[in-house]
Every structure is written in structure tokens, then in C-alpha cells.
Computed example of a mutant assay.
Amino acid sequence: MIRSTRSRKALTASAALALSFSLAACSAANESSASADESATSEATGAVKGAGASSMEKAQNEWMAKFTDEAPDATVEYAPDGSGTGREKFINGAVDFAGSDSAMEKEELTTASEKGCTGETIQFPVYVSPIAVAYNLEGVDELNLSPQVIADIFAGKITKWNDPEIAKDNRDADLPDTKITPVNRSDESGTSKNFSAYLSEAAPKRWKHEPDDVWPVKGGEAAKGTSGVVDTIGAGEGNIGYADASQIGELTAAKITAGDDFIEYSPDAAAQVLESAERSNASSKTDYAVTLDRGNAGDGVYPVVLVSYAIACTEYDDPETASTVKAYLEYAVSEEGQKAAEEAAGSAPLSETATKNATDALGQIATE
């Protein structure tokens, strides 16, 4: 087991997480509070392992490359096995840190402390990105979809692309009489949970399933990981699915209802949905999970988003491991790290407040 007996240290991270994510949040104050400690980064040594959300794969690859450029004696591995697998590996002590598109629940946090996690478990947003509703339909280069229609498509109630419910929002499109094949994740996925949460909040009369990492509907096609979903959508005429927008490649994404209009995804539009986010457990000093209001997105707000979390422990068996985990995650939330993720994956940089909370939390990792 990577981590040892726990010793509970209280985190002194700021109690409030006022998540106001903005693409303009790269101020001088942010730089001073969010930049990774250059000395700690350059002196990091040894190998650490992480696993989790495949949606973060591009960002993690970029972070690993840039971090190890600055810390040539350190090795960081990240397996994009899916959020559920990443959390399970972390709970059991098989990896040193995890990434997840859905926050760890109270029961998971408790189990981690009982089994694999030394000290306390910390989790905080590290990556924010729009989820694209991508489709493969020849001759249809632009498509408007309401949450009600998306819900009926993925529930298997709308089965043809020229269905009147789709046609009424796409009067200029030549919609064919082609079968719709929904594509979902086959593995436990935080992207699935975020997408189904959007449907349950934005179309509660059409979508009767509780948000879950396990996709609740049978009958479409299922594929493992973000890349698997993207490949499957692209492989069949009439296919439609959901995936982190940074990874859909040449696929076309639908415009989604935002207030009184339909809008394309963008990091800026996705970030705005977090302005009304509240902490799920405001009294916790270690848990920075947030609750989004996807059902009441206003004009210009892209409501289908995922918030990915970094998960780590406050203590590790090996001080070298602790130092490298801390330095790596500090780099990820730094201004430089967030800019790297934005360029590689189209994500929205963290705000000054969110970055400070993450940095304060990481400051509790014992390195001696």
C-alpha cells in the first residue's frame, strides 16, 4: 500500500469557496497566490501515480510534460481509466492522487480514511470544461437541441432525426429519416454523472433518472472512456453522444438552449454556470465539492459542464512522494498550469478565489 497509518490533521483551507470562474482571472494577485513554488517543483524527485477521469487526459498530459520539464528528476503517471476507477484506486491506496469528474461522496471519503488514505482526503476543482453533445449526421452542419429533446433522444423516445420535436427547432435543416443511435459511456464516468445531472435539472419531466456515474439507460451503444465514445460517434451515421468538448475532434457539436437562445459551447460560456455554484458542504475544511445550477442557465450560459476534482491525502508514507504530489498539483492549479490546460484542452482557468482555496488545501500536505 502506498500510504501508511493515518494521522488526522485539520486542514486550514479557507472555509468559503466562492466559485466565480472567469477567463479573465489571471490578475497579479492571482499570480502571487496561485503560482507553483518554483523551488519545490524543480527539487521534486521520485515517481508518483495518479488515475481517473479520461476527460482530463489532455490537460493531465500537458501538466505532466510541463511539470517534468521543470522537475527532471520526478516522474508522474496518470492513467485515464475513468472517474470511478480513479476514485476506487485512490481509496484502496493503489495511486497517490486521483482525478474525478464527480466529487467523492461522504461514504467514499470515509472509506478512503479507513483503507488507503493517510490523514484526511482533500478534494477541490482543478479543471472546468464544457461537455459537447456531438453528433454524426451527413449534411447537417448546424443543429439546435433543447434539453427536453436531448433527454428524449438519450431515453430512447425520439428515434429518428426528422422527428417533429427536432424539426421545430431546426426549420432550415434538411433532416433525414435516419435512425438515431445514442452513445454513452460503458464505464463509471463522472462525465455521465454531469451529463445526466444536466438532463435531470433542465428537463425533469422528460428525464426520470438520478445522476449517476453509471449510465442508466440501455439500448444505445456503449463505449469505454472519452476516446471510445468519440470514436463510436464518428463510426456510425446518425450517432450522437456526450464527451468533454476538448476531445471531440472533427465531430460536430449541437447548440444547446441557453435562456431564450441556442449557443455553442465555449470555455467562457461554460465557466459562467459556476457563478451560482455553492459548496456542497460549506462547513467542511477539506471538501470543496460544489453544486451547480444547470437547470436555470441564463442567456449566454452554456449549461452542460463538468467540474473535475483533484483528490489527494494530507500525509504519505514517503516524504518524497508527498513532496512530488504536492508540487505537481500546485503546478496544475497555478496560473501557468491552468494556461497550459486551456491551450491543450480548451478548459476554463480557475478564478483567483478557487485557486487560493486549492493552494491552501495543498499546503496541508506534510512533506517532512
Rank of each mutant, 00 (worst) to 15 (best):
E105C: 08
K160I: 10
A243M: 01
A51R: 00
S280N: 14
L362N: 01
A132S: 12
T314P: 03
L350V: 05
A270Y: 03
A332N: 04
T159A: 13
D172A: 12
P349F: 02
A51L: 05
E138R: 12
P211G: 04
S39N: 12
L350H: 04
Y78R: 03
A18D: 15
A167E: 10
L306D: 11
Y316S: 00
S186D: 06
G93C: 04
N30Y: 07
P204R: 07
A53E: 11
S196R: 04
K224H: 09
A134I: 05
A289E: 08
Y288F: 15
D73Q: 13
D172S: 13
D260L: 07
A258Q: 06
D260A: 13
V273W: 03
A322V: 04
A345T: 03
Y331P: 02
S83N: 05
S33I: 15
E188V: 09
S284N: 04
E77Q: 10
E201T: 09
D244Y: 09
D231H: 06
S129D: 11
T68C: 06
T12S: 15
A51T: 04
L137I: 11
L251D: 09
D187A: 08
T257C: 08
A270V: 04
S186E: 05
K218W: 02
N170I: 02
N281R: 13
A98M: 02
E107M: 11
C117K: 11
S27A: 09
E250C: 07
M104K: 03
Q148E: 15
Y127W: 12
E43A: 11
K326M: 05
A10L: 14
A222N: 09
A358W: 01
E336N: 09
C117E: 10
A253F: 00
D81Y: 14
P72L: 07
D318Q: 07
D101W: 09
A358C: 12
T178S: 03
K285N: 14
E62F: 05
N144M: 07
T314W: 04
A40L: 06
G84V: 12
S54P: 00
Y302W: 08
A44C: 08
N357W: 10
S186P: 02
S39C: 06
K193D: 07
S42Q: 13
P125C: 07
G82V: 06
P130H: 02
E201V: 04
G93E: 03
